[in-house]
Simulated assay, not measured.
Amino acid sequence: MTVKKVKKAVIPAAGLGTRFLPATKAMPKEMLPIVDKPTIQYIIEEAVASGIEDILIVTGKGKRAIEDHFDSVPELEQTLIEKGKSEFLALVEETTNINIHFIRQSKPMGLGHAVLQAKAFVGDEPFVVMLGDDIVQAEVPCTRQLIEEYYKTERSIIGVQPVSREVTHRYGIVDLKESIAGGLHKVESFVEKPAPGTEPSNLAIMGRYLFTPQIFKFLETQKAGTGGEIQLTDAITRLNEMQNVFVYEFDGKRYDVGEKLGFIQTTLEFALNREDLREDVLKMMTQLIEEQTTVKITI
């Protein structure tokens, strides 16, 4: 039997973004820019580079700006054409030549509930879930790595990376059952944000999932868990009891743009990686460091 091709991606984007208030009072956190590109666009670009053909973004109230960003703006495009600004026109057009669909999560009932909204979109196909708080830079796109592992196993696969024990309480942590070749592991169970000192390993779920459609069977019957929400991790644990769920230690650098310090770090690193900004940013950072050092000495 031929393995079904992974063609669809689901991007949950219905969160309130409370960590970035007041900026997110009127602007979706997914639209906060890393230099000059919204964070969600990096996720979309990874999906496209991984061979994904259809993308569903699960939004909520106050998220209309996401839809507008990926829609065409004829007036802007015509103005850029008339002024001969082909470089900017290309930047605008690259956000519209993607097959993107939208659905609204009516109530903020958790990540598992958000993924459940994609059931009709997915049908009986395997699909990926990509969280917008995690940007991954890799030679082979992170999502593509998971897809390649799926073609070998034909089972759900979750992207993980090791973290320090001091921060395991912030993540979904994997209790390993058996290690296989090349960074692939079978899983005993998943623990959502374990209390410090109780973590079964330091392998943390990093915002990239590939599921068989059987996950919906468990999401539909999943009871509310931590925070009174439908937790995706709980449904994955139940799926793992029916068919093996694997985790894969993907290659690449993961950036956490879901909290302030990580967002600042990502912005600085991405700016330093751009030829048009690197020299000026380095000068600015050097000057700021010197100023801060002088202030401390003076005090």
Rank of each mutant, 00 (worst) to 15 (best):
V3G: 08
P12M: 07
A14P: 01
G15L: 03
L16E: 14
P22Q: 03
A23R: 11
K25F: 04
P33M: 06
P38T: 05
E46L: 12
V48I: 15
D54S: 14
G62W: 02
G62E: 00
K63V: 00
A65S: 02
I66S: 05
E67V: 07
H69L: 07
L76K: 15
L80H: 00
E87V: 12
L89S: 03
V92L: 10
E93K: 14
T96W: 06
T96F: 05
N99F: 05
Q105W: 04
S106E: 15
K107T: 09
A114I: 06
K119M: 13
D124N: 13
M130H: 02
D134E: 13
D134V: 14
T143K: 01
Q145P: 00
L146K: 06
E148Y: 01
Y150D: 00
Y150I: 01
S156Y: 11
I157H: 09
I158A: 12
R165H: 08
T168P: 05
I173C: 05
L176C: 09
K177E: 15
E178Q: 10
I180Q: 09
L184Q: 06
L184G: 02
K186R: 15
V187C: 12
V187K: 04
P196F: 04
P200W: 08
I205R: 08
G207T: 12
G207K: 12
L210T: 06
T212E: 12
Q214C: 02
F216Q: 00
F218T: 10
E220N: 13
A224G: 02
T226G: 03
G227L: 07
G228F: 01
Q231W: 10
T233P: 07
D234N: 15
E241F: 12
Q243L: 10
V245A: 06
V245C: 02
E249Y: 07
F250R: 03
F250V: 02
K260T: 12
K260R: 14
L261M: 09
F263C: 01
F263H: 01
Q265A: 01
E269Y: 04
F270K: 11
L272F: 05
L272N: 04
L272W: 09
L272I: 08
R278A: 13
D280H: 13
L282Y: 11
M284I: 10
M285L: 15
L288G: 03
T293N: 14
I297R: 12
I297F: 11
I299D: 11
